[in-house]
Design a protein around this nucleic acid. Sequence first.
DNA 1: TCCGTACCTTACTTCAAGGTGGGTACTTAC
DNA 2: GTAAGTACCCACCTTGAAGTAAGGTACGGA
Lengths: 124, 124
Amino acid sequence: MAVSEVRAPNVNRVDCPSRPVLEHVTSRWGVLVLAELRDRPHRFSELRRAIGGVSEKMLAQTLQTLERDGFVDRDAKPVIPPRVDYSLTPMGREVAEQIWTLTRWVEANLDGVFAARETYDKAR
Amino acid sequence: MAVSEVRAPNVNRVDCPSRPVLEHVTSRWGVLVLAELRDRPHRFSELRRAIGGVSEKMLAQTLQTLERDGFVDRDAKPVIPPRVDYSLTPMGREVAEQIWTLTRWVEANLDGVFAARETYDKAR
DNA sequence: TCCGTACCTTACTTCAAGGTGGGTACTTAC
DNA sequence: GTAAGTACCCACCTTGAAGTAAGGTACGGA
């Protein structure tokens, strides 16, 4: 074994660097961006129109974070008017697939959640 | 077709009720709680010790939200001192499985993320 | 008698997420 | 000529999420 012990990443550790990464992909807008880019690349304003309620600021911020982490590829063409295409990297495609499954699951099981809430609320 | 059109749930809609649900399961502590409960039921303070950095307040709040949505089952035994066991409902087990896969994926791909960040940061 | 454990709740405070509105630089459509 | 689209960045301010701290209860042990 090596002299310096290399700790395996563990999200349960307060200071584990995997925490922020997980938070980026599960963030409010991160989830929706990844799910949306799953089926095809989008331009900035296309994404903005597709995802209801995102402000330009938050969309730009979210895309930057995801790009920095290596999930999103940004392709800026030096033309006027500006044209920027966002797509998933191979790594991004893997997470997006999982996120997408999760979003579809939630959509499909909404009724179950509502039923649970009714039971819960009636019990008090 | 029926007279009243029933819109299918769509996370991309601002007002779609699936949004909050998705936010609950992908919330900072929600993710970690679900992942932790995946392998076995936990008591409150067990969870608190397992998940680094949660305050009692946030853990209680997170558990309540997940219970109300029907993902977590709360079993409070009327004994002194209080004993409360938290476990996953069948619905909860389905999401937890996905969340768990995601967390493992992130842990396993941390190096890829770091590499991407280095490339990104050096480019400016 | 006071500490410690277990499972919370409430009040107070802080900090970051997010919204708003402005600016840029250029083009096409009205 | 003026408005709108494109893809942002920047500064300001509000809101809500989260942290901190303390209280509450019923007991068991020192």
